[in-house]
Design a protein around this nucleic acid. Structure first.
Length: 424
RNA sequence: GCGGGCGUAGCUCAGCUGGUAGAGCGCUGGAUUGUGAUUCCAGUGGUCGAGGGUUCAAGUCCCUUCGCUCGCCCCA
């Protein structure tokens, strides 16, 4: 006997699960398309070196990677952004920027599993490439908000916690932490909510910061007021940009979702500007979505600098949150018609009627089980059919079939030739 | 990486201090052969996660291993 379990950390989608997944994907897709984003995709397999980065990103350590038969180092993508960067670089000359693209890639990471975290998930990604202005952030955030609203979430249930890495950069500069340490400090700061403050101190000092610097950093970070920060910083670029973003969002009527939170830095080293996470207002859950500006990713891959903003939104956490809130939709199977013959001679006519109705755009199934009436009607009911077409020998001699309305419990004989026009 | 809990029918689980497996739900068939509910009857169901050990005898005790789950550590 083969092992019937799916590979550790991966999921099977039975039709019932698939309906839910499609429901979610359709919301993501519709929201994206409505906001003028175009869909793209790449292969789940990439060269491993696409993900090898210097700054100690955890994601590089958790690759699902292997060697192919010719010795190439390959990896299943752990995230979509590097692949997107690869596409942009590849067609750099022929793309007219800015562009707005989205994708719903399946991503993999090899790691120990905990709640809400598997080795495989789907992650809606939306990005704006080539727009240096903070308008790109605004547009991305508005897309995100409309998706959350379409999922049925309200202000009480989600906020966007936002900061700007340039604020932390300004702080680090002010306390004389060298530039080349900044992204490593960010990776550590990203853990602020998840590990003890002692462990955090240790990690920062191991990186080369003095005890005094760590203390000063902590003082700055404990300040949660944007205006105070602005007064205390020499370089106020980050604060100004963030204020402008909040103003724009305010004008768009959606600033109520935004919460400044200096502890948001994100764990990926390629972020350069605004960074944000979506979470419940009390930050109870794992963030369901995270993103930001990554103007240096493309240049890190050897191209020229291209400004970019985007986010990733995972299906596992999204559905967990909706499940906890009791907001998962009921998605029963649906059929417009089910056609029930009672003898093998009627199979041909059943298929003919089915084909005609399908040509009209209806969802039609046939029940060839040749069981008793009772079983068939019950089965029709369970399959979600609105109408059943019963092929009785007696009516068929007059070229008629019986249409039963499964909802009204009413039925009547109808000429086969009239069936299509009645169906309309 | 370290602990705790769990793994018995398709699903949810019961099975006391060792004596060769049970319920509910589901599924299949039937209760005037052309009609959805409820009810009733019957049937289908399991090498007790896997491997080894102790014993006359193991679902039950011991060891190993795999999987799920919850903490901690680690980390998106």
């Amino acid at each position: 006997m083969i092992d019937l379990q799916p590979v550790k950390g991966t999921r099977d989608f039975f039709p019932e699960d698939m309906r839910l997944r499609n429901w979610l994907f359709e919301i993501w897709r519709r929201t994206s398309v409505q906001a003028g984003f175009e869909e793209y995709d790449t292969c789940v397999l990439e060269h491993e070196n696409l993900y090898i980065r210097k700054a100690g990103d955890e994601i590089s350590k958790q690759l699902f990677s292997f060697e192919d038969k010719s010795g190439r180092r390959l990896a299943l993508r752990p995230e979509m952004t590097p692949s997107l960067a690869r596409l942009i670089l590849q067609h750099n000359k022929s793309l007219s920027l800015p562009i707005k693209w989205f994708s719903i890639p399946q991503c993999f990471r090899y790691e120990r599993m905990t709640k809400g975290r598997r080795r495989e998930h789907f992650q809606w990604n939306a990005d704006i490439i080539g727009q240096p202005d903070i308008l790109a952030e605004a547009e991305i955030l508005l897309l995100l908000i409309s998706a959350c609203e379409s999922l049925g979430l309200t202000k009480k249930e989600f906020n966007i916690f936002i900061s700007d890495r340039r604020i932390v950069n300004a702080i680090l500069n002010q306390i004389n932490v060298p530039n080349d340490l900044h992204s490593k400090v960010m990776v550590i700061l990203d853990k602020r909510d998840k590990i003890s403050s002692e462990a955090l101190l240790d990690m920062l000092e191991n990186l080369g910061m003095s005890e005094k610097q760590v203390g000063m950093l902590n003082d700055y970070l404990s300040n949660t007021d944007l205006k105070d920060l602005e007064k205390n910083l020499n370089d106020t670029t980050g604060v100004e940009q963030l204020n402008r973003l909040i103003d724009i969002m305010d004008a768009a009527g959606k600033s109520a979702y935004l919460k400044f939170d200096i502890s948001i830095v994100r764990g990926l080293s390629y972020y350069t500007g605004a960074v944000f996470e979506v979470n419940s207002p009390d930050k109870k859950h794992r963030a369901i979505c995270g993103g930001g500006r990554y103007d240096s990713l493309l240049s890190a891959f050897g191209g020229e600098t291209v400004p970019a903003v985007g986010f990733g939104f995972g299906d596992v956490v999204a559905l967990d949150v909706l499940r906890d809130l009791g907001r998962l939709p009921e998605l029963p199977r649906k059929l417009d018609y089910t056609i029930i013959p009672f003898a093998s001679e009627q199979v041909g006519i059943a298929l003919k009627i089915a084909a005609d109705l399908r040509m009209q755009g209806y969802v039609v199934d046939c029940n060839f089980s040749m069981k008793k009436m009772k079983k068939n009607i019950r089965h029709a009911n369970e399959s979600g059919a609105e109408k059943a077409i019963l092929l009785f020998p007696e009516e068929l001699t007059e070229d008629k079939v019986v249409i039963r309305d499964m909802i009204l419990h009413e039925q009547k004989p109808v000429k086969i030739t009239e069936l299509i026009s009645i169906a309309e």
